[in-house]
């Protein structure tokens, strides 16, 4: 075959423009592989065509670039004829995987929401219970503190060496009754401890302590039965103490028919 004649026959141009039939095309490709001059001539024409086409380029519409670039991102890398199954997996794979991952995360998050909300409700109820019991304990503690302080101050008075102790035993009409007066010899303050007194039958009655000064009763204060030491009125001088049940608020002079206890101050 005359290669030069073949090269200048127009077969190169026909090949490049895709105008050869199957048979001619295969022949041309085979000859290209074995004849570098033919390949070089083909390259030269292709390059010339490309340069000419680039020089004669017509600017496509402005918005098209964006559309094209978007469409390959939307369609992804797509597939090629060479490896059809691989590319789609790669292309849609990450999108689908991301979507699936999102769904799984969303579902997981929802389940956790329900779980954590129920836990929240449980712990919130427990917290309320704890706060309530803590408040209860605090108030109980305060009450205990108050009582402890009362006892401590009472004990302090009793331990005071200058304290005169006057036992008031029950009189004949009330033999079981007993009270004790602690009388500070320095300050003359009077403290009363009720050891045993019957509870008044009516709420409008109240016990009253009397100091007997030179045979005359002097009011030393009224009291209700309670724990600990009751601070009574200051009594500068007295030979004896007595307790009667009077109307609430006390009386100016004692009703001796309602005398419960009586005790002399030992000299």
């Amino acid at each position: 075959m005359d290669l030069q004649h073949y090269i200048s026959s127009g077969v190169i141009e026909s090949y490049v423009f895709g105008l050869l039939n199957q048979e001619e095309r295969m022949e041309f490709e085979q000859l290209c592989a074995t004849h570098p001059e033919l390949r070089a001539a083909r390259d030269a024409f292709e390059l010339q065509l490309e340069k000419q086409a680039l020089a004669q380029a017509v600017e496509p519409p402005a918005g098209l670039r964006e559309r094209v670039l978007q469409s390959i991102e939307v369609s992804g890398p797509g597939f090629s004829d060479a490896n059809p199954p691989l590319a789609p997996v790669r292309s849609m794979g990450w999108l689908r995987a991301a979507a699936v991952a999102c769904m799984v995360l969303l579902l997981g998050s929802s389940v956790l929401n329900v779980y954590f909300f129920s836990r929240y409700k449980l712990y919130s109820a427990r917290y309320d219970q704890l706060v309530a019991s803590q408040l209860q304990m605090a108030s109980a503690n305060r009450a205990m503190q108050t009582r402890l302080q009362d006892y401590e101050s009472a004990l302090g008075h009793i331990k005071n060496p200058g304290m005169i102790v006057v036992k008031l035993p029950g009189v004949n009409s009330s033999p079981a009754s007993l009270a004790t007066v602690y009388w500070d010899s320095q300050s003359k303050d009077v403290y009363l401890m009720v050891n045993q007194l019957p509870r008044p039958a009516a709420s409008d009655r109240q016990y009253q302590l009397w100091a007997l000064v030179d045979g005359k009763p002097v009011d030393a204060g009224v009291f209700d039965i309670g724990d600990g030491l009751l601070k009574m009125k200051n009594i500068p001088r007295a030979q004896a103490f007595a307790i009667t049940l009077e109307k609430r608020g006390g009386s100016p002079s004692p009703h001796l028919d309602a005398l419960y206890v009586l005790g002399k101050v030992s000299a």
Partner: peptide
């Protein structure tokens, strides 16, 4: 647009022995 999508999709089948990319 169709051409560029096809180029993107079919680039695997391009054979440099048969001609230039252009």
């Amino acid at each position: 647009q169709e051409v560029f999508i096809n180029i993107w999709r079919k680039i695997e089948s391009y054979d440099a022995l048969k001609g230039r990319l252009f």
